[in-house]
């Protein structure tokens, strides 16, 4: 939708068979085809010594550096399989121009929504459970994924496993979210801040589930939890997970694990307790009645004072009149 290119120059168009050679490490990659392109660069499928890999190249070297930083910390944290593993970082020099690129594992698979459309809704909660597990690990390492959305999720396999392919939005916990997509951003819906904390990602998971049942997405009307609740109620599939969804969308889950447990409960036919919410509502009502009560007693007090005042004045007038006559 963004029309101008004043500082975002035109896209890459690298032809099949082009050899991209790194300036620092001298590795050569042969371009097979384009996998996708976004605002931050283009991803190509490449051949490296007979193996397939994904190469992301960008006009902005700092975009590459920033994503590489994230991927590196992923590989440092063992057991985190959320993102692709990093293979190489380098610069490609052609003529006077220099472009930065990095090479990562090629995750072969289908995007989340087409996968569900093809294989059925049964897979949705299962993939979400997988995602919540990996996300929980990521949070424990001190990171928040940030720009979580179906476009960044690939279902690989068999065995079926959900993976994230774009880690550009990953932010250390406690900072401001770097990148987001409105539909999956709790700030856009008026349901929270853009501070990176686990509950930010869990909101996005809730929206990914909603998006799976509304592939066209929808625009914000009145926003807030009302509109999203309506959307959940209108879908037979989403109604099953309503309790978990509402809790995720209103930031009630502090950890991915808590959400995962509740989702498992539903899948096993148990009900999810809404305890926190009912308690809060009750205490709210309590406060309200107390307020009303105190207001009533205040009014009574004023009436009492006025009555006493009138009575005393009458007595005084009576007394004075009595003195005169």
């Amino acid at each position: 939708m963004i029309m101008m290119k004043s500082f975002t120059k035109s896209q890459f168009n690298i032809k099949y068979g082009t050899i991209i050679q790194g300036k620092w490490h001298q590795n050569s990659y042969k371009v097979i085809r384009e996998l996708g392109s976004g605002a931050n660069g283009t991803v190509y499928l490449v051949d490296f010594n007979g193996n397939k890999a994904a190469l992301k190249i960008s006009f902005e070297p700092m975009t590459v550096t920033s994503e590489v930083n994230v991927l590196k910390s992923f590989s440092k944290a063992q057991g985190v399989t959320l993102g692709p593993s990093l293979l190489d970082v380098d610069d490609w020099v052609i003529g006077t121009q220099q472009y930065s690129f990095y090479v990562m594992e090629y995750v072969e698979g289908v995007h989340l929504i087409p996968f569900i459309r093809k294989n059925g809704m049964t897979w949705l909660p299962i993939l979400i459970l997988q995602l919540l597990k990996d996300l929980g690990d990521l949070h424990k390492q001190g990171w928040v994924f940030g720009d979580l959305k179906p476009d960044n999720l690939i279902v690989a396999g068999p065995p079926i496993k959900i993976r994230c392919i774009d880690v550009g939005g990953t932010t250390p916990i406690g900072r401001a979210i770097k990148e987001y997509t409105e539909f999956f951003d709790r700030g856009y819906w008026g349901l929270g801040s853009r501070k990176s904390e686990p509950s930010y990602d869990l909101f996005a998971i809730g929206m990914i589930m909603i998006n799976s049942c509304y592939p066209q997405r929808f625009l914000k009307k009145e926003g807030g939890i009302q509109q999203l609740t309506q959307a959940i109620d209108a879908s037979q599939e989403l109604r099953k997970y309503k309790s978990v969804l509402i809790k995720a969308l209103t930031g009630k889950y502090q950890t991915a694990d808590a959400m995962r447990k509740d989702l498992l409960k539903i899948l096993n036919g148990q009900t999810v307790s809404d305890q926190k919410r009912t308690v809060r509502r009750r205490s709210y009502n309590y406060n309200q009645t107390r307020q009303r009560k105190s207001r009533r007693s205040w009014v009574m007090g004023v009436i009492e004072t006025i009555l006493i005042f009138i009575l005393i004045s009458l007595l005084y007038v009576y007394y004075i009149l009595g003195n005169i006559f």
Partner: peptide, 13 residues
């Protein structure tokens, strides 16, 4: 930095 956008994508821009 400059950017020209349609009104509806103003927030994100």
């Amino acid at each position: 930095v400059s950017q020209v956008v349609y009104a509806q994508s103003l927030s994100q821009t």
